[in-house]
Amino acid sequence: MKASKRKEVLSHHLERSLHLPDGVLTTLPRMELSGNRRILIEGCKGIVEYDEDRICLRTEVGTVRFLGRSLYMHRLNPACAVITGRLLSVEFLE
């Protein structure tokens, strides 16, 4: 666990020093928002909570909570998750 943490920190420093975009060497989740209607999450580790107005996903940086109305998971596979509906907020929980 410690080794992986050390590797993550090293990758982060390398990214900074080489002026690379965040997430190229590290395993940060990538999220792509299309307005407030659709969000694509790469690096989703699992679902914590799933409801029509609340979806919580576990990621590398912790839990991400999406609040909204008529939310539903359009697609879920090991590579990515796609949530559609009317998004109201995105929260990052430690």
């Binding site: 679902i47 799933y50 539903y72 998971m73 697609r75 879920l76 596979n77």
Partner: peptide
């Protein structure tokens, strides 16, 4: 636990789509 089912499916590499959770029933 529907979320546990979804996580297990994702872990198994099974793609799911049109996932809806309404009135305690999960559709996918």
């Amino acid at each position: 636990y529907p979320t546990r089912f979804l996580n297990a499916a994702a872990d198994a590499g099974i793609p799911l789509w049109d996932i809806r959770h309404k009135d305690g029933v999960l559709w996918c």
